[in-house]
Simulated assay, not measured.
Amino acid sequence: MNQSDNKNEAYNMQDDLQNQVIDLQMSLTHLEVTVERLDEVIARQDKDIQTLQRQLQLIYKQIEGQDTDNGIAPFDVMADRPPHY
């Protein structure tokens, strides 16, 4: 092997390393974007869950406050079974 072959091999190794670093940087950027998007989704879902919990609490309060003496019987799972059971 002569000196020019050694230089070419060194340049090739350097190019390979640079390409690997570029690939890693691109992968890291992609992962950062993915994490940001997932964070936004989680934040939105958390708000939705909180809203649903508040709505459910209001529904429970309405149900508890209803007067059952108005002629409507409370829901009974066993009484409302279809005839084929």
Rank of each mutant, 00 (worst) to 15 (best):
D15W: 04
D16I: 09
I72A: 08
Q62P: 02
I63H: 09
A79Y: 02
T68D: 13
Q53T: 12
R37K: 11
L58H: 11
L52V: 05
Y11P: 01
E36C: 01
D67S: 03
Q55S: 07
V21H: 00
T68Q: 13
D46C: 06
A43D: 10
Y11S: 12
S4D: 12
M26T: 10
E9Y: 04
N2T: 02
D16N: 11
D15H: 06
Q50L: 11
D67V: 02
I49Q: 04
Q55M: 03
S27V: 00
T29I: 07
K61C: 04
E9C: 03
P83V: 01
A73R: 05
D46R: 14
A79Q: 05
D46A: 15
L56K: 10
Q25D: 06
Q3M: 06
G65S: 14
L31N: 08
N70A: 08
D80H: 12
Q62N: 13
Q18G: 04
E32M: 06
Q57S: 14
K7R: 07
D15L: 08
K61P: 00
Y60N: 15
L28D: 01
F75N: 01
R54G: 05
N6G: 00
N8S: 08
L56H: 14
R44K: 06
M78V: 14
N8H: 07
V77E: 15
F75M: 01
D48L: 10
G71W: 00
D39T: 13
T51A: 15
V41T: 12
V33C: 09
I63L: 15
K61D: 13
Q18M: 06
I59T: 10
D48G: 02
Q45M: 10
H84M: 09
S27M: 05
I22R: 02
K47R: 13
I72D: 08
A10G: 03
D69T: 15
E32G: 03
R81P: 02
D80L: 12
G71F: 00
Q14Y: 08
N8F: 04
I63W: 10
I63G: 02
M1L: 05
I72V: 14
N2D: 09
V35Y: 09
D5P: 00
L17C: 07
L31K: 07
K61V: 06
M78E: 15
N2V: 01
